[in-house]
């Protein structure tokens, strides 16, 4: 150790020795150490993947073997260092899986139920149609932050106790809660209604004359025609669920295993930002979580544009 007076202070040079006891050979070792004051590295007893250690001995985590592991070190850390306290599984992968699961389920329910409701509202005559549609429009105007107060309670009580029939006392912290409360959005129904309204009446009439029931007409004739809006709806719903933040934040609070990716990222920020901000893994996680929608966007640009103009009509 050497101290030299320097401009406006003191430059201290430390010399230390690294002993690699792991199995991986650290051949060329690029190092990036930020050493907090009065830090004892020697006695760091916690394993590197323990969240409690983050922010205390973070600098050691940057030691990596070779250039590539160094460059992508933060990405590896995101997966390696976030472990579930209860199951010991890697959290980040779980979060990605959860988000995928939620997004896919929501896409499926939305496609089915939105086209059903959209078709009924667009092409069938029944009592209360105008009223239901007006109600739909009204519901699109009221912000989510108004109704979530009651929705939270509804899920807490298991939808008026109905979930008890399945042996589940509360739907908070469950995917069932998220799925049931988000079966189908009003705007998706609106999009499908707009589409079905534009189809010519002759399509339906000939089938009706042959005596086909409403269900046959819907499933055999109308639904196959609805591929373009269903495609747009798939992309938009997937993106919407993948990015959803507010409602999952309310419903899923613990355990960390069940978080979707957005809430997981918030968790990540808290973990790595606890002492001093360790931005590497936070930004790596951020990038990974943005990747699917970016890919979707590049592949299906047109749908995104349509989507805005669709949601634009809701105003």
């Amino acid at each position: 150790m050497k101290r030299e007076p320097a401009e406006g202070g003191l430059t201290t040079t430390y010399r230390f020795r690294l002993v690699n006891t792991g199995e991986v050979a650290l051949d060329p070792v690029p190092m990036d150490l930020t050493v907090p004051m009065r830090q004892q590295f020697v006695s760091a007893t916690l394993a590197p993947n323990r969240i409690e250690r983050l922010g205390r001995a973070q600098s050691w985590n940057n030691v990596s073997a070779g250039l590539l592991p160094y460059v992508f070190g933060n990405y590896a850390r995101v997966f390696r260092e976030n472990y579930s306290a209860s199951t010991g599984k890697g959290l980040f992968l779980l979060w990605i899986r959860n988000s995928f699961f939620l997004a896919v389920t929501r896409v499926i329910t939305t496609l089915i139920f939105a086209s059903m409701a959209g078709y009924a509202l667009a092409r069938l005559n029944f009592r209360g149609k105008q009223g239901i549609f007006a109600f739909l429009l009204f519901s699109m105007m009221i912000p989510q932050q108004v109704t979530f107060i009651s929705n939270y309670l509804v899920l807490r009580d298991g939808i008026f106790g109905l979930s008890r029939l399945f042996g589940v006392p509360t739907l908070l912290n469950t995917y069932a809660g998220l799925i049931v409360s988000g079966l189908v959005g009003a705007s998706s129904v609106f999009i499908m209604k707009q589409f079905f309204e534009r189809l010519p009446a002759s399509l339906e009439e000939s089938a009706r004359i042959d005596g086909a029931s409403t269900y046959t007409v819907f499933f055999r004739i109308m639904l196959p025609l609805a591929k373009p809006p269903l495609g747009a709806l798939t992309i938009l719903t997937f993106q919407g669920v993948w990015n959803e933040f507010f409602w999952p934040l309310v419903v899923i609070t613990s355990p960390a295993d069940r978080f979707p990716l957005t809430i997981g990222l918030l968790n990540l920020q808290r973990a790595y930002g606890a002492a001093t901000f360790d931005w590497g893994p936070i930004l790596a996680g951020t990038f990974i979580s943005a990747l699917p929608v970016i890919i979707l966007f590049i592949a299906f640009q047109q749908y995104f544009v349509e989507g805005i103009s669709f949601s634009g009509t809701k105003g």
């Binding site: 329910t109 089915i112 139920f113 939105a114 059903m116 409701a117 078709y119 009924a120 509202l121 069938l124 005559n125 029944f126 149609k129 239901i132 109600f135 739909l136 519901s139 009221i142 108004v146 109704t147 979530f148 107060i149 009651s150 929705n151 309670l153 509804v154 939808i159 409360s181 988000g182 079966l183 189908v184 009003a186 129904v189 029931s213 409403t214 269900y215 819907f218």
Partner: peptide
């Protein structure tokens, strides 16, 4: 009944998670 059957899932979310919610708030 067909229109109401087709609308049922949507009506469920609309009534429980919007209508009821709004009145309750």
């Amino acid at each position: 009944l067909a229109p109401y059957v087709l609308l049922a899932p949507f009506l469920f979310t609309l009534i429980v998670f919007f209508g009821y919610a709004f009145v309750r708030v």
